[in-house]
């Protein structure tokens, strides 16, 4: 408490003159093909992008990309893949080879894909601890820019949310790009109508 008052009074003693808060316009993307642009940016950043005609084709696409997969936790469970445990705990995610999750929205300008604790059913660690990650994005949820993304997300409802823009990567050793640092080694984005 004492430090709080000390800090605040020191701030007040040297406060700059008033400065208006600007209204920032919602800049939009010039390219009308938002899914195409998002795919282009993602592929440039070592993410695989696939299309599925309908939601029921998602698992067929996943079979093509990850035929040998181990433990899989999926928003679209079938005979081989389990649903996300609910309620679950971080230990349920141990040993996950593949996580398949439906995203809230995608951003064309930078390939950032939003997912929150709600879609993760409380399993915040899942998209990170899994060896491989699949994010399913509906075409109509893809926006052009980050401004549009935050306008659409509005006030947060979940306790945690994240933009994921590719597989975990690092260039910390001599600026050489290495895919698969601490989190998921690969990312597949499936765009569905």
């Amino acid at each position: 408490m004492e430090s709080k008052h000390r800090i605040l009074s020191q701030i007040r003693a040297g406060l700059p003159p008033p400065w208006p808060l600007p209204e920032v316009p919602v800049f939009r993307l010039e390219n009308p093909d938002k899914p195409g642009e998002m795919a282009r940016i993602l592929e440039r950043g070592a993410t695989q992008v696939a299309r599925a005609a309908t939601i029921s084709d998602v698992n067929a696409v996943i079979d093509c990309y990850y035929p040998q997969r181990g433990k899989t936790l999926s928003t679209f469970p079938d005979s081989s893949d389990s649903a996300l445990p609910s309620p679950g705990s971080p230990s349920d995610c141990e040993g996950t080879d593949l996580a398949v999750l439906e995203a809230v929205l995608g951003v064309a300008e930078n390939g950032a894909i939003w997912i929150s604790e709600r879609e993760l059913q409380g399993l915040r660690i899942l998209p990170f601890i899994t060896q491989h990650l699949v994010l399913v994005v509906r075409e109509k949820t893809i926006v052009g820019t980050m401004h549009e993304a935050y306008a659409k997300l509005g006030r947060p409802e979940a306790g945690f949310g994240v933009f994921i823009g590719g597989p975990s990567k690092t260039a910390d050793i001599e600026q050489s790009l290495v895919i698969g640092a601490q989190a998921a080694r690969s990312l597949l984005v499936i765009i569905i109508p």
Binding site: V24, E109, A112, F160, V162, G165, S168, A171
Partner: peptide, 30 residues
């Protein structure tokens, strides 16, 4: 919150030339 759009568009591009960092995590509640 919408100000994040401005800063996130600038940050990674200025830092490493990436369009955005791979993970941009928003921690609100425990």
């Amino acid at each position: 919150r919408s100000d994040l759009a401005v800063f996130l568009r600038l940050l990674a591009r200025s830092a490493t030339g990436q369009p955005v960092t791979v993970f941009t995590s928003h921690h609100r509640q425990p």
